[in-house]
Structure formats: C-alpha cells, structure tokens
C-alpha cells in the first residue's frame, strides 16, 4: 500500500531531511521523490510505502501536518486509492 505526501512552502535547509526522518520513525519507506524550487517556493511530491507503517493512517497524517506547521510548510498525506480510482478505468 502506498500514500502520496505533498509538501509546499518556503525553501530552507533540511526540509527533505526532516520529512525523511519523520517517515522513517513511523516505518514509512520512501519510494520516489519529485521536487522543485521555483523562486524560493519549495514543492515536493513523495510516493511512500505504508505497508509496514507502525501507526494508524490518520495518526501519520496528523504527525506530518504537525511537522509542517512548525516549519512553515503545508504537508498533506493522501492514500493512493484516490489517485488510482480517479485516473484508472
């Protein structure tokens, strides 16, 4: 099972490091990262594997949102099913 993490905010040192550490602490494995910086604006999409996640999905969603709030980042986690059902017949 996978999930998608989207991150938007002002660029700064250590954004990816912080989010990666948070993922690791919950047993969430990073599969893919697409990231860009446009005029100081940081945008990242992460595809992660949540098969071995150590907590409820909603707990992880809250943890990531909290992590973002403290750093001026908007972080959202969405289960992969919404993308699969919308874009596959």
């Amino acid at each position: 099972m996978k999930a998608v993490i989207t991150v938007v905010g002002h660029d700064s040192i250590g954004i990816i490091a912080g989010i990666s550490a948070e993922c690791a602490s919950y047993g969430v494995n990073i599969n893919e990262i697409t990231q860009s910086v446009l005029s100081d604006y940081f945008v990242m999409i992460m595809i992660v594997d949540i098969t071995d996640m150590k907590c409820d999905f909603s707990e992880f969603v809250d943890a990531m949102e909290r992590h973002g709030r403290g750093r001026g980042l908007e972080i959202h986690v969405m289960h992969e099913n919404i993308f699969n059902s919308m874009h596959e017949i």
Binding site: V4, T6, I45, F83, N84, H87
Partner: peptide, 12 residues
C-alpha cells in the same frame, strides 16, 4: 501506477 502528473491534477 501513480504518476506525478495525475497526482498534481488531483491535488489541484
């Protein structure tokens, strides 16, 4: 299969 274009579209 998840792709970035589809993810962007949905999020948008």
């Amino acid at each position: 299969m998840l792709n970035v274009g589809a993810i962007r579209e949905t999020v948008n």
